[in-house]
Design a protein around this nucleic acid. Sequence first.
DNA 1: TTTTCATGTAACTTTATCTGTTACATATAG
DNA 2: CTATATGTAACAGATAAAGTTACATGAAAA
Lengths: 145, 145
Amino acid sequence: MKKSSRLSLALHALVHLEAQPDKHLTSTALASCLLTNPVVVRRILGELREARLVAASKGPSGGWMLARPAEDITVREVYAAMGESLLVRTQSEPGDHGCAIVRSVDAVMKDVLADAEALLAERLAQLRISDLARQTHGARIPQLG
Amino acid sequence: MKKSSRLSLALHALVHLEAQPDKHLTSTALASCLLTNPVVVRRILGELREARLVAASKGPSGGWMLARPAEDITVREVYAAMGESLLVRTQSEPGDHGCAIVRSVDAVMKDVLADAEALLAERLAQLRISDLARQTHGARIPQLG
DNA sequence: TTTTCATGTAACTTTATCTGTTACATATAG
DNA sequence: CTATATGTAACAGATAAAGTTACATGAAAA
């Protein structure tokens, strides 16, 4: 894991959950699929849980499940739930704003990036977890131990 | 300075250069405008110099100038010159690609982000340094010492 | 030609952010 | 009760960006 691949991890986890709709998958099991740590899985799926995209249950035979059918979960929702921007923030520090040029550059770029993000969101709204899962068909989906 | 605000710094510097078309501005003078370090200015403007957007001259009365009129420099060119992506890379590590799900998620997201980036670039091509400068009119442009 | 002042870079330090890890509280099925 | 899962806090390590220092190089100006 290197870059900010949180969104990628989240999508990956969701597709794994989709692949086994009736099972609860534990953070540990998912972590071994995602080649990361159970705590990292909990952190990421925790955000998705707050957005009601997945549900967690504790105790023996507990774990994670999709809270809704994969057809009803768009990548846009996942993206929003992560509270992450796919667009780099170009804003300067608050302290720099004494300069009028900084303010106008920031303002213009903020507008442009807001537009771009809206377009991107629109595009992501067309993509569903089930689409990602379908994309994997033909390729083998590794079963969990 | 905190975030990856290199593009913001570059645009800010270019607008300062536009504001004083006949003067050479030194890295030190620009650094005090941008509230950063002369070396950082040289690093950033150095990339713009390679893209022929600005020119540098050494020695006394040397410094930086726009290589072309501000009307002929688009933000897209600046963006390209910085070799920076405004879009976050969602790709996983090469090692993770043993899993078919990772590969398909990455592939789909790569396509979506490439489309989004193309749209963004198109939009940035409409924006010129002179537009950013005009945006600052009415607000005072601080003169350099 | 010599001095002065600017860029051009390399190398290192500092800082911010993200991930990995450990530890433990909490809850729940059996 | 006990085993096993999530939920979090707290801290360590890795990475990348920015800040800093130092100095070589080159060009204008005296």
